[in-house]
Design a protein around this nucleic acid. Structure first.
Lengths: 332, 332
DNA sequence: TTGTATGCGTTATCAG
DNA sequence: CTGATAACGCATACAA
């Protein structure tokens, strides 16, 4: 029986090639090595079927080329999209991803940060909700949609601009009475600005509007109650709705249709996120589209930027409007 | 200036606590240690803010508690669901996930296996399409939906039974002329059996049917051509369609409606997978639901089973039918 | 039960 | 440009 019960190491390769261990390391890492030595080493690698073992390097250098992504889940299509594009951006830079799902559990958010540190990740990208989350100072850390402090870069869409755009679009489509509806976490984060932009535009355009914000944890039926209380004699008090997310917009459209209202004929609806059915088919609802590829790229390039020096504390990326059939386009 | 520029190690803790390095290791790993020693160590850990560094252990033991999941992407809702449930199953066992997206690129599938080995993962779960993929013999490996050999466990839904069930349901709903449509990869994998089950049921029930399988890479418009060629004088030759995936079913329903046909009144459609809109809302189409949580659980428990000994080579899990509005329920 | 000592595979620092 | 050698942090066999 051969004694090759264990995988060959650089030392084995060195012995096989008749060179020093350091030379093998240099070949493997593509550093300057004499041509004759290089080929001797490469032959030996092939003969032995040597494969690089990154744990040695991690121990020695403390770096892993792994970035932790902390996010609620991957079932929500917006998160799925984010995960997808962040992975593309990481792969482009030869990095791997350690995926951490929190399911909106604040304790898990904390635990995963600790776990990421124990695994020597090179950085953390996090989309979290824990109001008391402690950001590690010794690991490059960027957050999505939530501002902590000037020293923790935050990447987000232009939420204010998106709210503003939604109101303008509804006006443009002929709406005269608007409402904004959302689930609002107790946390004040970047998406909270969707409301502010919407309000700002309504005031500016002198359009009447109402706000219906429901705290997280409140039952969805409150939205139904709200709509019904504004429904008299077969018509709704609003002809245009801006909803905090596409997901909620979808649910609310069901309610509207259940009430006998037609969307978009009687009520036009604009959501936020830019979710497509099955990920790449038509938009689920008319929407303000977040620039997910750009957000992902910004997250990755920021978290990997050397020592996180000279990085802006808030990166805000432009959104755009897209029709998903729940608004009336002017000229088709 | 303090000299704590580097993170404290077990050796630092041992010195601080006045015990031996091995004792610290035993405390950290929850092994038997005298009570007085344990508390001395725990105090020292707290004082120093020590945090476990897993790279040392990985180097020493060769194990990481990380499982690689190789999958095309996370944008397709079925894959998103799979990722989600596999992560739940891994977390339950204190394992982390290294996510590898292939985007159906066969080279990437190979590369990621190599990368996973270099990262010392404890196992690999893979959903792949490369016909020549080489399965590493030295790493626990399970595949989803694709049988390689008796030594590589394969986890899949009961695809044959699903096809069979779809045909029976369509019959039950009053259909008399059926067709099956799918994109078929050149690869013969478990999902290929959806067709076989469907055919078997049609023959058994003595129902006329047609099969329209399009090779991957062919344009979708071929399906349109197929439907149009079976469309005469305002009616389609089929009143029931079974489609290989919900995703394709969704697209085909668009074509049908574009032709002026009503779904489900004129044509009933059943897809496969069990995809819900926004991940947790209504089913996108009437469908054969894959038992994703059970598939995930089976993948994880199998890949982690000690030495992969005594594991079945094919685990087949039961599917069920669900209405998604593209079939006519008998009694509502 | 606790202490001691060694080695896991790699990188990096020196001399040569 | 190459060779020899010392860490990196931890687990564990062995000695006490």
């Amino acid at each position: 029986m051969p004694k090759d019960s264990k995988a060959p190491t650089m030392a084995d390769v060195a012995r096989e090639a008749g060179v020093a261990l350091g030379t093998v390391s240099r070949v493997v890492n593509g550093q300057a090595v004499g041509e004759e030595y290089r080929s001797k080493v490469e032959d030996a690698i092939r003969r032995l079927g040597y494969e690089y073992n990154s744990s040695g390097r991690t121990l020695r250098t403390g770096s892993t080329n792994i970035i932790a992504l902390i996010i609620p889940n991957t079932v929500n299509p917006y998160f799925a999209l984010l995960v997808h594009h962040i992975n593309i951006a990481l792969e482009k830079r030869d990095c791997r991803m350690m995926l951490c799902f929190t399911e909106y559990d604040t304790d898990r958010e904390t635990e995963y940060i600790q776990l990421a540190r124990q695994n020597q990740v090179d950085g953390i990208i996090a989309l979290t909700y824990n109001p008391n989350l402690i950001i590690p100072a010794d690991i490059p850390f960027v957050t999505i949609d939530r501002f902590f402090s000037a020293s923790v870069p935050c990447i987000a869409s232009d939420n204010f601009g998106g709210g503003w755009l939604a109101a303008h679009k509804l006006k443009e489509m002929g709406c005269t009475h608007l409402a904004f509806m959302r689930f609002s976490s107790t946390l004040t984060n970047e998406p909270s600005k969707r409301r502010d932009g919407f309000v700002s535009a309504c005031v500016e355009m002198n359009i009447p509007f109402e706000i219906m914000a429901l705290d997280d944890g409140q039952p969805f039926s409150r939205f139904e109650d709200f709509l019904r209380s504004h429904y008299k004699k077969g018509s709704l008090a609003f002809d245009g709705l801006f909803i905090g997310t596409d997901y909620l917009a979808w649910q609310i459209i069901h309610v509207l249709r259940g009430m006998g209202l037609r969307v978009p004929e009687d009520v036009q609806v604009i959501g936020f996120d830019g979710i497509r059915i099955f990920g790449d088919q038509e938009y689920a609802v008319s929407t303000i589209v977040q620039p997910v590829p750009e957000i992902a790229e910004a997250c990755v390039s920021t978290v990997l930027s050397r020592h996180m020096s000279n990085v802006p504390s808030l990166i805000c990326l432009p959104v755009k409007y897209a029709c998903g059939g729940t608004t009336i386009e002017k000229k088709e």
